[in-house]
Amino acid sequence: MEAVFAARAVTKFYDMGEVRVHALRGVDLELYAGEMMVLLGPSGSGKSTLLNILGGLDRASGGSVLYRGFDITAASERELTQYRRRHVGFVFQFYNLIPSLTALENVAAVTEIAEAPMRPEEALEMVGLSDRMHHFPSQLSGGQQQRVAIARAIAKRPSVLLCDEPTGALDSETGIVVLEAIDKVNRELGAATAVITHNADIAGMADRVVHMSNGGVSRIDLNAQRRNPRELHW
């Protein structure tokens, strides 16, 4: 299978005054095309740092990250912006929608700057929000806002979809609806998807589960069978 990402000996440290905090201590990891990967670990294990580096939001202190052969650790700020713009879809714990734009317009904000995107309506339809397209974020529930965020992330037809605790701010029932949406776009669009969570119950929906602790990969599990998010509960 083709590796979308190949991370080699990635390290990341932050200098906090006199203390150096090691967030990543040499991570080797691949993300394959079309796969669903769940990154599992307690807070402080380095999973968000890794995701941010993969998504071009942060830079590694050492090692290399190849995105289809392009080394994003050596990319300029401008190249990283273009990289995010073309290839990466992000979903965050707190949705980060633009409050002054409707659901449709939030999606359009991305399709307007993307190459060959889908229509915003189409993206919202995929996450089951056709009837809420003209609502403003303040008029949507948390789960609905998160699904708008997913629609916004996938409307550009990204090669990778990176989700950082997408259900972290939601109750389990709403969370499952959101995970279903992520599962659906992964299957239908074939975007390599990485979902960060500290909730082990979510791991069942993945092809591969990467366990992280203390800034490194401690274990990788392969699920023989991806479970439908409907079957998950916590």
Binding site: R84, F90, N96, V110
Partner: peptide
């Protein structure tokens, strides 16, 4: 700032 940072994450350039 939050909105603008979100847009930057989504791939908007500094100029945009």
């Amino acid at each position: 700032g939050r909105e603008l940072a979100s847009l930057r994450v989504l791939g908007y350039t500094r100029g945009e």
